[in-house]
Amino acid sequence: MKTTKQKILHLLIKEAPNALSGEKMGQLLAISRTAIWKGIQSLKDDGYGIVSQGKNGYALPYLPIDEAKIRQQLKTHFLGQKMQVFPTIPSTNVFAKEEAQQKPENGKVYLAEEQTLGRGRLGRVWSSPKGKTIALSMVLTPEIPPMEASKLTQIVAAAFVEATKNIADVQIKWPNDIVINGKKLCGILTEISAELTQIHYVVIGIGINTNLSFEEMPPDIQEKATSLLQVLGKEIDPNHLIASFLTTFEKYYAAFIATGNYQPTLQICRQHSAVIGKEIYVIQQDSKRLAKAVDIDEKGQLLVQFENEKKTTPIFAGEVSIRGTQGYI
């Protein structure tokens, strides 16, 4: 049984980004305008970015994440069968980890339209204004050695490339970022809780810049990041993207877990690499060395050839940045 508040939210989501008057909502739900007003206030308190548009009424001025819409398009067996959507949250990864600590639910997906404490590399914070980005975290409990778990990050990257191939030509900046035109579009963060040989749970977080306009980005970010809106020149439906990504990821993931087959991922990671063939800097601890990115090996490690060296060296940790680029990568 839905509460009045949930019914109001449902109407606004259906109408978004257009406005719906309080009077109309009152008629549709057969309740007073005062009750509508109270419901709206309560939703705002929950963090929904509802705006009042005078005579026109109330609106969610963006394309909201809508679980029902995602489910209509989702073709998965276990992934996203349980889903939790937040208007705002400090961090979907932190929340998912807290829940997984109690009881990990394989395939549970957490979504948010705004993160106030996005966790990036080394705890760096990235901004995510309400309704313009997607924060997605998923909990997995694969029976694989912990050492193998780093492949999951690459499977996510490959699935993202595959899920967006019809709308954009994105590249993977090894190992965990999705870039387009040299700017960051999406970041992946994988966290595991494991013992020596056994994984308790994996939480994979993805931040996607969907409908963030150029003007909505701070100047220093404008140089480094972009969004699908900026690339395509039009808004995209986050629900379609989420469903498409989850469906694709489950396909690659299930194949990897069942057979250990990682080749489709490797192929995509190599074909759509933003670093292979480029001169890069390898930054490890306090050193920064010039190298050429040669390939990605069977373990998913980046093979580089350091300056003045003939042999190739696999890189599994540290940062890489591409030489001569102004932007993020």
Partner: peptide
């Protein structure tokens, strides 16, 4: 411990 952007929180056990 981090490798290839996989962050493993190590418990003492």
């Amino acid at each position: 411990i981090e490798a290839m952007k996989l962050f493993n929180e190590v418990k003492s056990e």
